[in-house]
Nucleic acid binder design. Structure first.
Lengths: 202, 202
DNA sequence: CAATATATAATACGTATGTATGAAAAAGTC
DNA sequence: GACTTTTTCATACATACGTATTATATATTG
């Protein structure tokens, strides 16, 4: 029962096309064409275009939590582990640049969020939240609602990745350039560190 | 020549429907229906659906720069003016919650960005950038690339607004609740302040 | 009030959409 | 190797799409 090649290729093509053109803009014909499979393959393997959409969301979002958990699992101070988590998020986004794009379409709709998306984001945010709370107990992180701080942190890599084309066309910041990407990562990490760190007593 | 009622209503309906369903998902029939005008009105007043789309983008994004400039224009330290700008951005987003949604669809596509969108975002980011640079000259803001810092700042209210439905469904954070909205604003402002402030010497 | 521009309206046209259908092929099973 | 299940394929169907067309109504101007 190895991997169902057709279904996998459909999901891969769907992720890219849903990210680029949104749900309605990515036609069944375009998806099956890009995947190199027959027109009827979506109906056969998933039942409907909508079901493939959910599978695509699950495929881009799903693995993120484990990736972030792994990145932040090494021993160290809470602040250090948060930095590693942020870098892990950048890493995941460079591997899956479609994540914020698919999510953006999905969120903008304002419809009920798919269960996978809701749960995954919940877990990702909880991961950051608990690290912040730990840092606050250690006395290394300043006071403030850890959940809201976590949202602030999460927003930056996500939105930065989403703004990819705009930053290139508007500010000549090409994230494909490894140096630019590294500068962006370091800037965000520095920003987050400074935002969380408890002010030193004068 | 007052205001062309039909064209205005078309833009208003288009903003909402493009925000919710994306370009392809918002049909000409749905838009004209919501606007309460004839099916042919888009062709007549704008020439095509694509032209209406550009007009809609211009209408949501365009006024933002002046709003932010006004909010941050009052005298005060750079840090204070940045705080006012961030609050101004939250205010603008509460008046135009479609902005990040329309922009998200547009950015996710990865296509050439519409000129209005590019220029407006450029100006908005420049506004923050120059305030940061000013604060650095004053010695109140820590070192770091002001442009990248500006992106970090901008990302938070934008992404927060975009995550509206997810925060409600996943974290029980309902931004329609004025108290929750105020807490979010204050948290982001505090986060930004701390991120920018030059560390005190111990 | 005629004449002339401007706006709205109803409808038609060709194309693209998601899915259903049934035949052909491939893979699996005894 | 015959039989059965699973998967692919080609095609058909009804509907929805963006826009063009043509007619009607409403302002505008002399």
């Amino acid at each position: 029962m190895t991997s169902d090649r057709t279904a996998d290729q459909l999901v891969a093509a769907a992720i890219e096309l849903f990210a680029r053109h949104g749900y309605h803009g990515a036609s069944v014909r375009a998806i099956t064409g890009a995947a190199g499979v027959n027109l009827g393959a979506i109906t056969y393997h998933f039942g409907s275009k909508g079901a493939l959409y959910e599978a695509a969301i699950a495929a881009v979002l799903g693995p993120s939590t484990e990736h972030l958990a792994r990145a932040s699992s090494l021993p160290g101070s809470a602040l250090e582990r948060i930095e590693r988590l942020v870098r892990g998020l950048f890493e995941y986004l460079s591997l899956h640049p479609q994540l914020p794009r698919v999510l953006a379409h999905h969120l903008a709709a304002g419809l009920p969020i798919a269960a996978v998306a809701r749960d995954t984001m919940q877990n990702n945010l909880r991961l950051i939240t608990s690290l912040i709370a730990e840092g606050q107990r250690e006395g290394a992180i300043r006071h403030g609602d850890p959940t809201l701080m976590a949202v602030s942190i999460f927003a930056q890599p996500m939105f930065l990745s989403l703004m990819r084309s705009l930053l290139r066309q508007g500010l000549d910041l090409d994230q494909d350039d490894p140096q630019v990407a590294a500068d962006l990562r370091d800037s965000v990490v520095g920003f987050v560190r400074a935002a969380l760190a408890r002010p030193e007593h004068s």
